[in-house]
Design a protein around this nucleic acid. Structure first.
Lengths: 92, 92
DNA sequence: CATATATTTAGATTATCATCTAATTATCTA
DNA sequence: TAGATAATTAGATGATAATCTAAATATATG
């Protein structure tokens, strides 16, 4: 069974430890970039980069609220990710 | 919850598409290096490199059989991997 | 409208990683 | 034991990715 670019992007997205930390953080609930940033050492530009990769993989969603951007986990893609993992690792 | 080096190595191991293909291939059953190699374009040295990363993550096991080395999936670590994914992505 | 705040984008740098060829190790067999 | 076969290891190279600073964009507010 062939792997799609979208699936590829999921594996790439979770390959980085900082991005996994961001995902974990967002399990607490939606957060602005500044709120997320408060949990990390790296620059805002780097955070923006990671968020864009997570968003590209559709693991998170954004909405605008004034001058802030609020990020949330995208649960449906998380579920798809689990299916993918099952397929990669499972016996079917 | 803190991520261990072993868990880190699992995410790194599945990050590469070729390694994911190797895992998929081994779902068919155990194989020697030469048998695995027959499915890919890259050199034996590169294959050896990928196998060593998968082995480092304990996703596969090796045993010797004459001058060959036979690789098999390590199902217990695959299950652990699923738990990890659940924890990363799940709601708990 | 000018300035402040929030975030992203551009461009450069550095580190990591996949890959290669050549050399090495280990095993088998004539 | 010499030569052949199987696989790994060493060392180098090129590509990709994480990170930074500086600049740009967008929004809010005095």
């Amino acid at each position: 069974m062939q792997e799609t670019p979208k699936q590829e992007s999921l594996f790439t997205a979770i390959a980085d430890v900082q991005r996994r930390k961001i995902l974990n953080l967002l399990k607490q609930g939606e957060m602005s970039v500044a709120e997320i940033k408060a949990h990390f050492e790296f620059s805002g530009a780097t955070l923006s980069h990671h968020l864009s990769i997570l968003k590209g993989a559709e693991l998170i969603r954004v909405r605008r609220q004034g001058q802030q951007r609020i990020y949330t986990l995208n649960l449906s893609v998380l579920e798809e990710m689990m299916l993918l993992m099952n397929r990669l690792l499972g016996k079917d």
